[in-house]
Every structure is written in C-alpha cells, then in structure tokens.
Amino acid sequence: MISRGQRLTIWSLVWLSIITLSLPTVVVLGASFTAGNMIAFPPEGLSLRWYEKIALARDLRQAFFRSLIVAGVCTLVSIPVGTLAGLALSRFRLRFAGVIQVYLLLPFTIPLIGSGIGLMLVFGQWGVLGSLWPVGVACAVINLPFIVWSVSSSAVLLDPDLELAAQNCGAGRVQTFLYVTLPAVMPGVITGSLLMFILAMNEFLVSLLLTDARIVTLPVQIYNSIRSIITPDLAAVSVVFIVIALAAIWLLDRLVGLEIFLKSK
C-alpha cells in the first residue's frame, strides 16, 4: 500500500524530473518560433521566419552537411571496430581482457580537451588537418566505448552453443559470423551505431580543435555565431538537432524493438 503522502512525494519527484529534463528543449522550441528579432521565451508572436532564414543560410547548410559527413565517417569507422571489439571482449577468454577493457575505456577518462589536443597534434603531424574525415575518425575514437558496451551487452546474452551449432551445421568461421553471430548481436550494433551517429553529429570540442574556418561543422558554426550575436535562428538550428536525435530514437525503437520482438524467450 502506498500512502497519500508517499504518492505525493513520488509524483512531485516525477514531475520535477520531467520539467527539469524537458525545460531546455521546451524553451528552445518556443524561442525558435518567435516573430521578434531577439531570442526570448516566451516568444513574441509566432512565425517560421527563422526556419526560413536558416534554410536559406548557405554557411549553416554547408556546416550541416559537413556534420552529416563527420557523423557518417564516425559511424562507418566505429561499426566494424566497435562490433569486433565488443564481441571479442565478451565472447572469448582473452589474455589481458581486463587490461584491454580498461584501454578501450581510456577515451572516457581523458578530458575531451586533452584528447582533442592529442588528436590535433597527431593529425597535424600526418598533415591531414583541414579535411573532414579526420574529424569523423576522432569522434569515433573518443566515443568508441559506447558502441563497445552496447555490442558486448548484446553478445553476453548470446548462447555460446549457437556458434557451435552453426559449425555443426557445416558453417565455417566466416559463415558462422555472418549468418549467426552478427544477426544475434545486431540489436547492439544498431543501438551503438545510432548512438555514435548522434554523438558525432553533436560533437563540439573536438570538432573545434580539428576544424578550420573552411570546414566548420554545425556545432562549431553555432558557437561562432553566438560569439557575435545571438539571434533566434540559433534556436531554430537547435530544434533541427533535436529533431535529428528524435528521428534516431524513433529509428532505434523501430529496428531494435523489432529485433527484440523477433528473439525467442
């Protein structure tokens, strides 16, 4: 039995969390629809003029496509690396498994500014600064633990006999991986790669260090604009980010939710 007082406490906590978590989103969403010239909440009147402005702004649009490329490169790099690392860590009894696990988590222990400067020095030495793909690779490196975790958590649920059964059916190593292991950990791979995509899309600090004026990504472009003048078009850009994240979550639910549905048990 929950008493009246307990119910009141629980619901106040629930609403407090809902409000604090969604407040920034709501404010930005409101501010983006303002008809005025100042970023403000509540908005002064309703209009889509700032959306029109960002749609027409060439620099924003280009920065947006650059961010998409960065996120795409990051995802493409992290899928094979993260999947294989996640599988290896959970499926095989490796020597130094503990050490490897810590090593793969290192990106989390170093402040982004530290890894960003490190990567900047390395890429500078290689002479690849100034192109977009190193930014994607950098995002993959610093966020790798996310996809490794998500794949391992799928892989530990895997019945080890499944792979033996595939061998027994006549499947070689590669076939076993393609037809049995990979489909079984697919939920983890999908979750991890969408996460990697969103994180790379939003990555600011490392992008700031690795990009120059010709190849700024969207978060850096927004930062540059804030430094000069804050107008409601930035709120509109933020809403675009939120929509992309929501789309990814929807996709995740469709794909992985479906996968779980297909699983036995």
């Binding site: 489909p183 297909l262 036995s264």
Partner: peptide
C-alpha cells in the same frame, strides 16, 4: 555429425 544441443541452440532470427 548432426547434433541436438541441451539448450537446442536454434537460430532465433
């Protein structure tokens, strides 16, 4: 060799 496993190990997907 055909084998039936203890937990069957059918391919769930």
């Amino acid at each position: 060799i055909g084998m039936v496993f203890q937990k069957l190990a059918l391919f769930p997907h």
